[in-house]
Design a protein around this nucleic acid. Structure first.
Ligand SMILES: [Mn+2]
Ligand SMILES: [Mn+2]
Ligand SMILES: [Zn+2]
Ligand SMILES: [Zn+2]
Lengths: 140, 140
DNA sequence: ATGCAATTGCAAATCGTTTGCAAAAAGAAA
DNA sequence: TTTCTTTTTGCAAACGATTTGCAATTGCAT
């Protein structure tokens, strides 16, 4: 899952299509997101962006992640405790297991669970718009 | 599920066992939690508590919910968007479907999903400490 | 009733995030 | 290119939810 993201998404094209300007800060931030398979939070993106261009502000990181999220280009995860973390919206859907000791995020996917979720919602008369499945655990 | 909570928990006994003092604010807050099957947030608990004793402060609501959570007497849910919401830790484990239009919280339980979660964690070499499964949807 | 530690209410602080605003940059048009 | 208009930026201040310091109050064991 991580490590085999389909192909690096063309965020610039997405931005262009969205009719927003392609600025230097956006290019930097977007490149960072497109080039990683982990789940950095805003501050971490800010650090990485600062290494490329020290002028970029944390505000712009927040504004850009929000913009990309709105475009469906990235996903936001509010894992318990910490700040929001982001990842590209490429690849197939998956859920996460968070290592309570290290904070590591491990991705997994269960077609069976996805299916059961749909059956449950169906039985309750609902359509699922999105969901959240997070396992919090420690190494055995 | 909601509406058929096993039996009203004796929070006073829990508090006593925890070695903390049974104060008027605590009694009021604890009674509110013990007497409802919904998922109120701190502000809502504060409103309900204020109706009983106008002197109770929001700080005390926060402190008491945190205390009860620490004792395992109540559960905290950080549904997306809003503030934390609480419910008694009685009854069997269940997960939630949140109505995106009304904010209503619907409880459900799937032994199959719980089982699959364990198998996934097992396969990854982890023990699940707790998890979060939330379906966000709208009426069909 | 007394004494002291635990708890409270209040106000101020905190954390992650958002926002107003004036200055800077994008990019369409000339 | 230069000009023009609009969007975007950085900064600082505001924000909402929650936590905290502190002095006053309370619970409760003696
Ligand atoms: Mn992921
Ligand atoms: Mn519930
Ligand atoms: Zn899923
Ligand atoms: Zn569950």
């Amino acid at each position: 899952m991580a490590g085999k993201k389909n192909q690096k998404p063309d965020y610039e094209k997405m931005l262009r299509k969205a009719g927003v300007r392609i600025t230097r800060p956006r290019r930097v931030i977007v490149d960072i997101l497109a080039g990683t398979d982990d789940h950095p939070d805003a501050l971490e993106i800010f650090r990485r962006a600062s290494a490329v261009d020290p002028g970029i502000s944390l505000s712009t990181v927040y504004r850009t992640t929000k913009l990309l999220e709105g475009l469906g280009a990235i996903h936001r995860h509010a894992f318990e405790g910490g700040p929001s973390r982001f990842e590209q919206a490429q690849g197939e859907h998956h859920d996460h297991l968070i290592d309570l000791d290290t904070g590591d995020v491990i991705e997994f996917k269960s077609e069976r669970i996805e299916q059961l979720q749909n059956e449950i919602a169906e039985a309750l008369g609902y359509d699922i718009i999105h969901h959240r499945l997070e396992l919090y655990g420690r190494k055995r």
